[in-house]
Design a protein around this nucleic acid. Sequence first.
DNA 1: ATGAATTTTCAGTAATTACTGAAACTTTGA
DNA 2: TCAAAGTTTCAGTAATTACTGAAAATTCAT
Lengths: 181, 181
Amino acid sequence: MTPLIQSFVAHFGEMGSRWGINRTVGQIYALIFVSPRPLCADEIADALSYSRSNVSMGLKELQSWRLVKLRHIAGDRREYFEAPSDAWEIFRTLAEERRRREMEPTLSMLRSALLEVPTNDEDRVAQERMRGMHELIEMMSNWFDDIQRLDAQTLARLMRMGARVQKLLELTGQLKSGSKE
Amino acid sequence: MTPLIQSFVAHFGEMGSRWGINRTVGQIYALIFVSPRPLCADEIADALSYSRSNVSMGLKELQSWRLVKLRHIAGDRREYFEAPSDAWEIFRTLAEERRRREMEPTLSMLRSALLEVPTNDEDRVAQERMRGMHELIEMMSNWFDDIQRLDAQTLARLMRMGARVQKLLELTGQLKSGSKE
DNA sequence: ATGAATTTTCAGTAATTACTGAAACTTTGA
DNA sequence: TCAAAGTTTCAGTAATTACTGAAAATTCAT
């Protein structure tokens, strides 16, 4: 590993642990991401000085997040791993997977909590707060879903617009006032 | 704690660990969030059966995330803690703090990596990928910053629009074609 | 200043999570 | 069907992180 790659990999190892992801997994992904060609498990274990089995676990985790693609090379039985070279695509996958793992369980917990009939003031207030949270998370979840379908270019345009989108909304609000939104 | 609140608190304890946040901190915040009035450390320790010192640590962490507000009650020396009752506000704080803790260090690492002059093909490719990632993260970081300034209502409108925003962009793209955007 | 009420720190311990090496399993070519 | 190449599982151990209780520090009324 060159020093450039080494520092990139190290950074993602540390960052990883601020997420749910562990150091090994972060480093493996960083390495695959910057590699010009797919890597096999042994190469990864070698480069990072981790045991073969640890790398195997890490790759399985990355697969469960759908962040790596498998490749096969003719005449070679080993599996090779590759990341999308487009950071947008990675981000999209990550967002979708987080929605599924973090938002959905919370939404279903909140939904069932909101079905309960509160029998005291404490529960009444609690439910009120939960309702607000449910509303927010549901909205964001749907929004993620919509965003998912935009192509990178449109999304980039939307982001570059930033706060100016507000102006646009005000404008269309006027144009469409009276219609369904 | 009522069963309703208990299940909410338990859920956030478990969810917390999928984030960087630990179980205790997640539970403390959940409890504060649904409480109709500010709580003091002893009440929290009591409700969750954690040691007073553990709760103290947890509250400190929540303060470092700026997720709790301190309140004082006349004639009572203890500090009371409260969460914004508006989930939007919480989300905004969280997003800002994550940007600061996760995006900024990564951006600065990437920036310095991109300043290096690559001396071989491996580094050249790696830098190319890093450039893509830098572009994406920087764009998102700026966008978060912009979003920050929108009021909840506008943001909600934007989200409810979802993918339809694409149509809007196409429209304005036509209107403005030739101008600076 | 004194001391009671409260909060924080910290060293030690418990619990959890990460990692390894060996063994089991799978796949494929001869 | 066998054996070689490759991958996964898993029990045990290492490393990390969470938690506690006791002691120290802080705050504030007198």
